[in-house]
Design a protein around this nucleic acid. Structure first.
Lengths: 142, 142
DNA sequence: GTGGTTCCCATTGACGCCCATGGTGGCCCA
DNA sequence: TGGGCCACCATGGGCGTCAATGGGAACCAC
């Protein structure tokens, strides 16, 4: 499969590392991605990750707008100022930095959630909560 | 037959596996499906399963919306983050994971229910209950 | 040096793949 | 029509492999 799907919760070890689910690593390997672009999600309290191609896409989106518009400026602030590059260690783990902790509230466990063309890091309880809320809204509106 | 019909209840073994009814497996084989897309039903406490084409359908639904809207993001959270790919073992069994147990209440037995283009996994008592209730409501309203 | 990383190796528990068994229903044949 | 044979399905369990996790030691920057 070539997209990020499902969710899994892994523990952060004493050194602050956490294993990226093998399923997600397989998708990254297939796309020959070895350096991850990570950004703070625009909607949820989660950090999103994907290959560098996503950053290119974001930049093209900005480029198509008036460079002096407030929109384009805000967008750049989010994707450049709120984004970093990360890479995995030999075992497929990533270091959970303060960049991630502060924005998500993650402390000792991480929920990885597939989002199709990217995946996200959530504080486990926040993920559960948001998902059940989304389900309720769908049920109510249908 | 090319659709999922009827229902059957099977036992979960010590390793947490359960046989998918051969009737359903036959439908899957005919559609050349070897990897199942499973999602938590939007209405019932059941997990639904079908071929990956269902996921494509869901994704087209999302694709028609503004990708930065909270609506589209929540829907993606459900169908991507709340969906899993599963595959059957050589004997046509699937592993009943916590993803399934937590949402359905399944413990040691599973009721498989055909739903036409997909089938569902229910906790046996919950299925009986829901079915008899549906029957009553129909009788009352007709 | 000291703190923070990165690279490497060990452990263990889960999962996939394989083979075995038993029970049931269908089919054939007398 | 009755009995027996056979095929298929549900189920059980062994075992090898791999992922998730833990920790030591080298390495770099300050």
């Amino acid at each position: 499969m070539n997209r990020f799907l499902s969710n899994a919760t892994n523990r952060i070890d004493a050194k602050g590392r956490v294993s990226v689910p093998s399923m997600f690593r397989a998708v990254l390997a297939r796309a020959a991605v070895d350096e991850l672009y990570a950004w703070q999600d625009f909607v949820f309290p989660a950090v999103s990750m994907a290959g560098p191609d996503v950053l290119d896409r974001f930049e093209r989106m900005i480029g198509s707008q008036d460079p002096f518009s407030a929109e384009a400026n805000k967008m750049s602030l989010l994707i450049h100022g709120g984004g970093v590059f990360m890479k995995l260690d030999g075992e497929g783990r990533l270091l959970v930095t303060d960049f991630i902790r502060d924005f998500t509230g993650i402390t000792d466990r991480v929920t990885f959630a597939g989002r199709g063309d990217h995946f996200q890091l959530w504080e486990p309880a926040a993920f559960e909560d948001m998902q059940s809320r989304a389900r309720k809204e769908r049920t109510a509106s249908s």
